[in-house]
Amino acid sequence: MTVEKGEDSSSGQTPEESPKKDGPAQIAPDLTVIQFIKVFPKVLLRTLRHPIFLLVVLSQVCLSSMVAGMATFLPKFLERQFSVTASYANMLIGCLSIPSAILGIIVGGILVKRLHLGPMHCSALCLLGALSCLLLSLPLFFMGCSTHQIIGISHQPRAQPGLELLGCTKPCSCPSDDFNPVCDPSTRVEYLTPCHAGCTQRAGTEALDKSKVFYTNCTCVEGGGPVPAGSCDSACSHLVLPFMLLVSLSAAMSSVTHTPSFMLILRGVKKEDKTLAVGIQFMLLRVLAWMPSPVIHGSAIDTTCMHWAQSCGRRAVCRYYDHDLFRNRFIGLQFFFKTGTLACFALILAILRQQDKEERTKVVTCPGLQQQPLVSEPEKKPEDSRV
C-alpha cells in the first residue's frame, strides 16, 4: 500500500508545483516554445557537465573524424600509393571496408544483448575495440613505396645522381607547364613530357601496341627508346589487398564500439535528459567531426605535393605527391584520432571503476542503512512487481 500512497501523493500535486521539474520530458507538454527555450540552456549545461556523456561524445567525435577522412581521401590514397584506378579503389572500399563496419556494429550489439553488459563492461568492450583498431593500423605506416624518380620537376626526394647531368632538356627549352608523362620501364624513371626525355618522334600505335602511344629517338633514355606514354606504375601494387584487409579489420574493430558507447550515454544520463542527450550527441558529431575532418585531411595531404599544375598563373591540381609523406601524414592522422578514442574510453573505464569503488565503500561503512530495506522488503515485493 506504500506504493499507492506514493502514487496518490504524486498525482495530488497542484498545477503550480508540477512545472518546477527540470527535465524536458515532464515540462515540455506544459511549456510554450519561448518557455522551453529559456529552460533549454540549463538542461544543456547539465548534460554537457556529465563526465561520462562528454567523454563518450569525444570518443565518437574522434571515430567520426577518422571515418570522414577515410571516406573522403582513401580512394585517392589508393590511386596514388598503389597505382590502381579510381573504379577499382572504390570497389575495394565498397566490398571490404563497408561490410566490415556493418558486421562490427552487429557484433557489438549482439555482445551487449547476449552478455547483458553493464556500463563498466560496455566501457571495457569499447576500450578493447579501440585498442585493437589502433594496433591494426600500425603496419599501415610501412605498406608503401617511395616516389619514383621524375625528371622535369624541381623538388625530387631521393633523386638519383647523374640523371640531371644528361643535359638533354636544356637545348630543347621544354615548357614546365605541360604535362604528358612518359616512363622508362627499364630504370623506372618518369619524364614530365616527351620533350624532357629528349624524344623527337612519335611511333605508330599499330607497330607496337594498339592500346598505348610510344615515343622513339629519346636521347635521355638508354637505348633511345621506345618509351610508353603515361606515368610509371607503383612497385607496391601487390600490397593493395593486404592494405585494404587491415583497413577493413580496423573498421570492424572500431565499429564494435558503436552500440556499447551508445548504451553508455543512455544509461549514464538522467531519464528525462536522454532524448536531449542523443540530439546533442549527433549535433556535436556533425559540428566537430564531419565538417572539419575533411578540411584537416585535405590540408595535410596538400603539404605533401611535389609538383602543382598551373592554371592562369594560379595553383590548380597536384601532379605528383611525395608518397612517403603522403602515407605518413594520412595514416598518422588516422592514428591520432584512434589514440584519442582509446584515451577517452580509458578515462570512462577509470571513472566507472572509481564510482563503483565509492559505492562499495558506502555499503561497507553504512551496513545499517543497507540492512533496513531488507526487513520490510518482503511486504513490498508483490506490489513493486505489479507496478
Score class of each variant (00 low, 15 high):
S186Y: 03
V240H: 10
L208N: 07
M70P: 02
E379Y: 13
T259A: 11
A350M: 05
G6P: 04
N90P: 04
V269M: 12
F330Y: 12
G204Q: 09
H323D: 06
D233A: 15
S261F: 02
F337Y: 09
D184S: 00
F282R: 13
Y321F: 07
R315M: 13
C168I: 11
R114Y: 12
S311N: 12
I150M: 01
D184V: 03
A124Q: 13
P228N: 15
S176G: 06
S123E: 04
E16F: 06
Y191G: 00
L134G: 09
N90E: 01
H148W: 02
G118M: 08
E359N: 10
C318I: 07
I153Q: 06
R202D: 01
P194E: 06
I150C: 05
G268M: 14
H307M: 09
G162S: 01
F142E: 02
P19H: 09
L127A: 01
L103H: 02
E379Q: 15
L249V: 07
S248M: 08
K38P: 00
L140D: 03
K38A: 02
G152H: 03
V39S: 13
K338R: 14
V3F: 13
P194W: 10
D30L: 15
V107H: 11
F142H: 09
E377N: 11
K21M: 11
A350H: 03
H258W: 12
I27L: 08
L333Y: 03
S173T: 14
G198Y: 10
F336G: 00
I351N: 01
A203F: 07
S100P: 05
P139G: 00
P373S: 09
T200L: 10
Q334S: 07
S311C: 07
S176W: 01
C218W: 08
M283S: 09
I37K: 13
L264A: 06
S376L: 14
L266H: 12
C312Y: 14
C183D: 00
C366D: 08
C318R: 12
Q201M: 09
C183Y: 08
V67D: 03
L117Q: 07
P119H: 11
S255E: 11
I106M: 08
E190P: 00
K210D: 02
R114W: 14
F142T: 12
V221H: 04
R188E: 08
C145H: 06
Q35A: 11
R188M: 06
T341C: 05
Y191E: 04
S137V: 03
T216P: 06
E379S: 14
G144A: 05
P175M: 05
M70H: 01
A252P: 02
H50G: 02
F73C: 02
I351P: 04
C312Q: 15
Q156F: 03
R202K: 12
M306S: 02
V67F: 12
N217G: 01
E7F: 08
T304K: 12
Q201P: 04
Q81L: 00
L31I: 10
S146C: 01
K38S: 11
M120N: 04
H148E: 03
G144P: 07
S231Q: 15
T200A: 13
R158K: 10
T257H: 00
S59H: 00
L140Q: 01
L369T: 05
T85D: 05
C133I: 03
R80C: 00
M91V: 07
L96R: 08
C305D: 01
